[in-house]
């Protein structure tokens, strides 16, 4: 009786306490390996010049300063076009691309997951294969296609391919498989149109998948330099402009670190926010059993 009680206290019965401790230890040491370079990046961005070039080098900053960030903004204000323009470009591309991707991929995923129609399996097979199309494989022909349809040097050349990214569709379709078909059947009998069922019933059921699609698409577009397709300075993206700052080499070590921190803060924050959401949604879906 006593042993039964002890077992119940643990999450899983087959796990020994020593093992739990050991796995925590491994996890923490590996976590340090993952986190330290990022901590160093942040610490470097706060170091004054004399601390960046010091022997022996220090890991953490002694006298933190925002000079490096200030330098970045000064360099920005000297740029060819107003710096806000680069920011606008990236934000615009990211938001429209992510939004379009979510809707268009979800529409297709819904039909693939919950309808039966000829050719369905074949289309899904192609999309699974397409998960292996890395951007480098399609880059050259994509350039030729863009120039044929006259999209070079427009936002379209960056936004539209991102909308059709197979990864998002694949994930969404897999999530949508889990929606109980009876739920959809019931509203079909009630006479709701497919369009209504999609928006009213299917989409609210797959919120975690929304967030996943948003994160992945956001990440791609946020870091997109796009210099292959865009020539006009007014249309260039923020990562491109920032990479120009870091391209100056060792003299701008501090500014480079500041740039890296600026670029990583946004995706990490967004992931933090949406991750807690995903876990929450998953926890609430676990009660049913």
């Amino acid at each position: 009786m006593k042993s039964l009680f002890r077992h119940r206290k643990r999450s899983k019965q087959s796990h020994s306490r020593a093992g739990d401790f050991l796995s925590l230890l491994i996890l923490i040491s590996m976590g340090c390996f993952m986190a330290l370079p990022l901590v160093l990046a942040i610490s470097n961005s706060l170091k004054p010049l004399e601390e960046l070039f010091i022997f022996p080098p220090r890991f953490l900053v002694r006298n933190p300063t925002l000079n490096n960030f200030h330098d970045v903004f000064v360099l920005m204000s000297q740029s060819w076009v107003p710096f806000t323009r680069y920011i606008f470009n990236t934000v615009f591309i990211t938001v429209t691309g992510t939004f379009g991707h979510l809707i268009i991929a979800s529409l297709c995923a819904y039909a693939l997951a919950k309808h039966n129609f000829p050719g369905q399996k074949f289309i899904f097979w192609i999309i699974v294969t397409a998960l292996m199309f890395s951007t480098q494989v399609t880059a050259i022909p994509n350039y030729l296609i863009m120039s044929k349809i006259g999209w070079l040097d427009t936002y379209l050349s960056l936004v539209v391919p991102a909308i059709a990214k197979p990864l998002g569709l694949f994930l969404m379709k897999q999530f949508m498989e889990q929606i109980p078909t009876t739920l959809l059947e019931a509203s079909r009998i009630d006479g709701a149109s497919e369009w209504k069922i999609f928006w009213g019933i299917a989409m609210p059921q797959v919120k975690p998948a929304w967030l996943t699609l948003i994160i992945f698409c956001f990440q791609d577009l946020w870091n997109l330099q796009g210099s292959n397709y865009i020539y006009s300075e007014q249309l260039k993206t923020l990562p491109y402009a920032l990479s120009q700052i870091s391209a100056a080499g060792i003299a701008r070590s501090g500014a480079t670190a500041a740039v890296a921190v600026i670029m990583m803060v946004v995706p990490i924050t967004i992931f933090m926010i949406s991750q807690s959401n995903i876990i929450e949604t998953m926890a609430s879906s676990g009660i049913k059993e």
Binding site: P37, L38, M272
Partner: peptide, 19 residues
């Protein structure tokens, strides 16, 4: 987050150039 952060932090890998 700790384990996923390096993948999503854009070009933060330039920090290895400093290391």
């Amino acid at each position: 987050l700790v384990f996923y952060a390096p993948t999503i932090s854009g070009q933060a890998y330039v920090v290895w150039k400093y290391i």
